[in-house]
Write a protein that binds this DNA or RNA. Structure first.
Length: 274
DNA sequence: AATTGTACCTGTCAGC
DNA sequence: TGCTGACAGGTACAAT
């Protein structure tokens, strides 16, 4: 489900509903989601903690808690984190319920059970490899063209795989990767090391533009994605290539081609993305 | 070090 | 109406 724009939208929608509330208890219906520590310690340590801040890094949600603890949640493909009122019947595939002070609950729902949840002390962040190896945040001010040129200089292989690699740039997934490549007019299996300076700039600008639009339109509800209030996003109506195989290209009218690149379904325009 | 393949799960859809 | 297989927003880990 969620790539950077979706996770950012969840973060923003949840923040006012959970910030400064105390976790009064945790109900576990499927403990396999909890990767660290064990379920008993997880629940025991969370009880009584206050949610100080809600943050995001790449596709990870970070709940900064009292006593320097961080609750780290990755939604992977089908994970949802939804604020609910107590007593409302549990949606199917609800695996975890965080009970909060002031009559609020935060529920973790995940059809495929791929989600990952950790409770760590701040200084234990290295325990989560996918988190500490993340590349730069593409929408931050620090993500400059010069920094991106440096990143590109270190990489090799196909562009689609490059964009999906979280250690290069954080937060891009399959939907936005295809949209970014279409926007920049670059072929998904074009070699990173073959890019000219001007093409690197186009790619950089497309990354900022497409992820920015994704956030602006509150994410892509292609399938399961909803924000922290259970509301759908709007960017699915603005997709130009993702899930549009065989449909005419918005730019030139030629049929878009669906193929596989980096072992992922990939749609592109063979004419515009030569 | 950096790729590639496989595993983790359930649901949906196309084709028979 | 089943049934089967392919595919789905993403990593983590092992093997190369």
């Amino acid at each position: 489900m969620p790539e950077l724009p979706e996770v950012e939208t969840i973060k923003r929608s949840l923040e006012p509903l959970v910030k400064n509330r105390t976790i009064t208890g945790v109900d576990v219906y499927y403990g396999g989601i909890i990767k660290y520590p064990g379920p008993a310690d997880f629940c025991g340590q969370l009880k009584g903690k206050i949610i100080r801040e809600v943050g995001r890094r790449g596709k990870y949600l970070l709940f900064e808690l009292s006593d320097d603890y961080t609750l780290v949640i990755h939604l992977r493909m089908t994970g949802q984190l939804i604020a609910s009122k107590p007593g409302v019947s549990l949606a199917k595939h609800t695996h975890l319920v965080f009970r909060l002070s002031g009559g609020q609950e935060l529920r973790f729902v995940d059809i495929r059970k791929f989600g990952l949840i950790y409770l760590i002390k701040k200084e234990e962040r290295a325990r989560i490899k996918g988190l500490y190896t993340l590349g730069p945040e593409p929408l931050d001010e620090g993500f400059t063209l010069a920094l991106f040129e440096e990143t590109v200089g270190k990489a090799k292989g196909g562009l689609k795989a490059f964009l999906l690699n979280q250690t290069r740039v954080a937060g891009i997934g399959n939907i936005y990767a295809d949209e970014i490549l279409f926007e920049s007019g670059l072929h998904p299996v074009r070699k990173v090391e073959s890019l000219k300076k001007e093409e690197i700039k186009r790619l950089y600008e497309a990354i900022r533009k497409k992820l920015g639009e994704g956030v602006e339109f509150r994410g892509t509800s292609f399938r399961d994605y909803v924000d922290g209030k259970g509301e759908k996003g709007g960017f699915q109506e603005r997709l130009k290539v993702y899930d549009r195989g065989n449909q005419p290209c918005a730019r030139c009218g030629q049929p878009l081609v669906k193929t596989a690149a980096a072992s992922r379904g990939t749609v592109f325009c063979p004419r515009c993305q030569g």
